[in-house]
């Protein structure tokens, strides 16, 4: 590809990615933020593809856009009153945040200008699946295996958290509760009234 075309595509993708990121950060509506994140993911995948890292680009689409983003969207959509900015997207500490972001940007720009970044385009099949697989199972086999162990641990942890307690465990936990039950039984009668009274007050707040 000629350099002109590469430059045009690069700046187009960069603007697309950055405007998506800006929308994620500045949108008052968190649902809009979640959807704008999709633009960012797709833009980054496009940048990978531009650098001939085909596999990385497709994996970015598959994992981030197709998996993680959909999960975020589900979480956002199944939460009640999510599109009210005062409830879900409360902004605080704007001034310190602006200072922190400004300082970080200055450092990043300094590094980008000073560092000898003259990385050439990835040539040939380096970004393809074959070279990637060779690298993962050759020189980088140890980090690769450690990451897979980490992911397995995360998976088991998630299953353990999501799984309900089994019968024996539940019975053990239920016994002390049963002993205390007569005492507790009297409480709900008293507790019910304040709860009912609290509900209209909450609606006024909203």
């Amino acid at each position: 590809m000629s350099d002109t075309l590469v430059a045009v595509v690069f700046y187009g993708l960069a603007i697309f990615t950055l405007s998506g990121a800006a929308l994620v950060a500045f949108s008052r509506n968190i649902v809009h933020s979640a959807f704008a994140l999709f633009a960012t993911f797709v833009g980054v995948a496009g940048l990978y593809a531009l650098m001939s890292a085909n596999l990385l680009a497709v994996i970015q689409l598959l994992v981030y856009a197709g998996g993680i983003l959909v999960l975020i969207l589900f979480a956002v959509m199944l939460t009640s009153r999510i599109d009210e900015a005062r409830v879900s997207n409360h902004a605080w500490g704007r001034q310190p945040a602006a200072w922190a972001v400004g300082g970080l940007t200055a450092i990043l720009i300094y590094v980008a200008v000073k560092a000898p970044l003259k990385a050439p385009m990835i040539k040939g099949a380096l970004g393809g699946p074959a070279a990637f697989g060779d690298a993962l199972l050759g020189p980088y086999v140890l980090p690769f295996e450690i990451i897979s162990m980490l992911l397995l641990a995360a998976l088991i942890g998630a299953v353990t958290l999501a799984r309900g307690r089994d019968a024996a465990e539940a019975a053990k936990l239920a016994k002390p509760a049963e002993a205390a039950a007569p005492v507790q039984a009297a409480e709900p009668a008293q507790a019910a009234e304040p709860a009912e009274a609290a509900e209209p007050a909450e609606e006024v707040n909203a």
Binding site: F35, F38, V42, V58, I59, L62, A65, G66, V70
Partner: peptide
């Protein structure tokens, strides 16, 4: 396999 994620979104 990846591009239908646009459809999901």
């Amino acid at each position: 396999l990846a591009i239908p994620s646009l459809v999901v979104v």
